[in-house]
Design a protein around this nucleic acid. Sequence first.
DNA 1: GTGCGAGATGTGAGCGGTAACAATCGCCTC
DNA 2: GAGGCGATTGTTACCGCTCACATCTCGCAC
Lengths: 328, 328
Amino acid sequence: MADVARLAGVSHQTVSRVLNGHPNVRPQTREDVLAAIRELGYRPNAAARTLVTGRTHALGVISFDTTLYGPASMLYGIERAAHAGYSVAITSLPAFDRRSMQEAVDRFLGHGVEGIIVIASEMPALEALSGVATDVPLVAVGCGTRAPLDSVAIDNISGAFQATRYLLDLAHHTVHYVGGPDSTLDARERAEGWNRALREAGAGAPEIVRGDWSARSGYEIGHQFAKMPEVTAVFCANDQMALGLLRALGEHGRQVPHDVSVVGFDDIPESAYFLPPLTTVRQDFGELGRQALRLLVDRICGRPAPGARLPVAPELIVRASATRPRRR
Amino acid sequence: MADVARLAGVSHQTVSRVLNGHPNVRPQTREDVLAAIRELGYRPNAAARTLVTGRTHALGVISFDTTLYGPASMLYGIERAAHAGYSVAITSLPAFDRRSMQEAVDRFLGHGVEGIIVIASEMPALEALSGVATDVPLVAVGCGTRAPLDSVAIDNISGAFQATRYLLDLAHHTVHYVGGPDSTLDARERAEGWNRALREAGAGAPEIVRGDWSARSGYEIGHQFAKMPEVTAVFCANDQMALGLLRALGEHGRQVPHDVSVVGFDDIPESAYFLPPLTTVRQDFGELGRQALRLLVDRICGRPAPGARLPVAPELIVRASATRPRRR
DNA sequence: GTGCGAGATGTGAGCGGTAACAATCGCCTC
DNA sequence: GAGGCGATTGTTACCGCTCACATCTCGCAC
């Protein structure tokens, strides 16, 4: 910086002013400085700047498994939205316990992030969070609507309600539900929406069967269902499990949708190409990420904001995997 | 830090020594300092440390679309491996042109990263990279084996060769290839492996058909193939396209594998649950990411390392989507 | 008892910026 | 023509830490 100042024939402070877009600099001086900067290929030192301003312009995102489509998409949304002004660091949790969560937060704090976004729906993770004393704002995303902190989420209840209602309207006696782990708020809320739709329709609620979000678990559950002739409609808490279910049902010769109707949740890009194409509930992960970022930035800037947000309504995407039951 | 020093009754320098694990500190003194740190909840300021040491312990990862399984998995591998010692920042490119690449690199450099990993296979992106004057080490991953810079990749040629050879050994006259965009090195190398296998077997090479990695593009290509009775075996450059192909073939009443055999590439977690389960070439994305990180760290530490690395051999995973042709 | 070296600790400078304040220069007003 | 004000620029102090070096304290060999 001193070199730049010397070359431009001004003081280092004037260089600093040009760099920061300070108004009171003569246009000619500004030009000189910019020319010197270009000539020297000068790049301001972020650490020095941070040291004195106290601002790092860095954000942290904590996630469990960014390999999954949902988290990956939210991360993508966050990151793209952050391009203007913030750099985004990520860390994945090896487990959901309080300790690893604390560790992740500490790591970020140590690196001086100004805020943290957590992509997680697991209750233990979220609870661990509330116990973590943080000096920076913290928001959760994709976590269900009842996380004990600032959050952005879709209306799982409404989504599950729509899916279930749709199957019921097709004249199915009832709808079986394949949920995610009970520890996730998402899965719980979807179960709630499913349950409410059944209740409103006066339909009995079969026992909930739980998978772990993977196609494998859906496949295993599909084997059970295939042997139960009373199962004519299944609502899966995500598309991967629906995929596994589809295959298991197929292996047992139970036709989808003629023998069994299946509805998923998420609308991953592949769902439209399942056999048959999957009717599912779309959630806009990217928008979720963007909203989470906006909320966090609001918090960082000290703008108070309403607690939980439900930015985008889930939408039922009708494809071929659900239809009227063969006979009543 | 001064507060800690005062409380522990030592100088700031001794606190610094304790923090950095300097050997020449009396155990008792060390204890006192640590106690003071705990009591005050003191956390060292990363910016100040960086300012004087010149080290940020930060890495940047540039990717195109982290929503895809491959990039997401590599990112995951990188990030997990970096936990010991580095923080990982990410940025996604809006496009592959030189300018956005330059911008991404600049952003990272501005934030002071010590090294950059690029997850991309697009030639334009890779070329842009070589034109970027960087002061920090740079490695590419998942980019094919012939990127013009340090890189870590799987042996696409071998993978594609195995897949094609497998189909040929099943007694198919030839194998059709559904590639990715021609601009990607991965797709090119896979085409090369496919081609080599055909040549060695003395089989004719049909014209390459290109998709864009998406299930949708595979679906469209599947419609074309369904009308071509001579197509009995198809090798897809990734699993998503294979999925789309499967559905299109199904819609036209062409049975897989009896009428048409299909082999994919990647082995995404869902492949095993396609209908029929997909025979595919597995690549270990996580290991790829870990190796890339290791290579980058080697470079950062000034350890010279061999240029391109092919860490893990791709492996053919045999499932049900490929079999002998119905008749010769 | 003295000198000396190694271990333990303290002191001062400076990393590269920004903030606060001071200084300089016109130009306008009365 | 003096005073004053705003625009522009320079000066100095520090942000919180580590490095290099100075200092101090022992234990030990002679």
